[in-house]
Amino acid sequence: MTVEPQDPGPGSMLVVEGLSKSFQQGTPLFRRLAGKAPIVHAVDDVSLTIARGETLALVGESGCGKSTFARTVMGLERPSAGIIRFDSQPLAPSVSDRPAKLRRSMQMIFQDPYTSLNGRWRVRDIVAEPIREGQGDLSQSAINEQVGELLVKVGLSQDDLAKYPHQFSGGQRQRIAIARAIATAPAFLVCDEPTSALDVSVQAQILNLMCELREQSEGLTSLFISHNLAAVRHFADRVGVMYLGRLVEVAPAQELFEAPQHPYTQMLLAAVPGKRRGQGKAGIQGELPNPLAPPTGCAFNPRCPLAVDRCRSERPVLAASRLKPARSVACHVATVSSV
């Protein structure tokens, strides 16, 4: 299979090859009675590379597998197949099997700051958790000092150390979560929909904070998961578009937004509300198919205005464009027209 250009050199931070994650549906008892449980391929054979210092965004609608991909990379879910290399070293499938040093250099910001912070812990203990687990011999005052500095860095104050999460607004909670994620000065940061649970004016604050932190820590690599295309365009260097567990298009952010190649990417961009009275929305139709029974061939073919017979029988592979090697698209029609 042709994947995007491989860069095994020191330039790539994260290399994912053929990553799949499937979930079995139903209870064990049901599985036994039915003989076989239905399987959902949440992530289906995804390969991609993130260069050192690069921000790659994964976009797509709910259920496309972008969050599952992020969680699998972080070792929170066990992959069904595939290899993940971090800094040219293969990663253990589960986070608890990864060495502490590696764990400290990979951190994550979650979507919902109401469930990602333990409501019964004080802010200083929440932010200190990754610091403590890394080096147990630090004194309480040394930890407090570090946590205080982190809080100031994310726009909170030292006075907040002893408070509980419920004393903060959603945006402030997300700041606490960010402070925890950067506490160990990670080299790789996964941001899973970090602003989608927040109010509009607060989203800008959090995105700016993340931009700031990225600039401060030279060479921070990040994987940014979002369904907010405008935020992705603002924040990411490169963008991957996922549909039903598969990567359908990868391109530098500017090029993707200016000239989307995959019909799904085009539809996604056209669907963003804001243009007056449905201009250019005629092509938007249908909904995500049932993931238990995905369409044969290209998963997008039932909704695709360009679909031909080949799309219904043969699954397109993600292939680099011959003219622009930085771009790749998984489409029979688009590949032909772009070459």
Binding site: D199, S201, Q203, A204, L207, C211, L229, A230, H234
Partner: peptide, 25 residues
């Protein structure tokens, strides 16, 4: 004004920072 400026747009030029309103409601 502040609210509209703080929303990233799909067609505006990309700025290093988004406009932000300080504080919260």
């Amino acid at each position: 004004e502040g609210l509209l400026r703080s929303i990233p747009a799909l067609d505006a030029p990309r700025e290093p920072r988004l406009w932000q309103i300080p504080g919260a409601m």
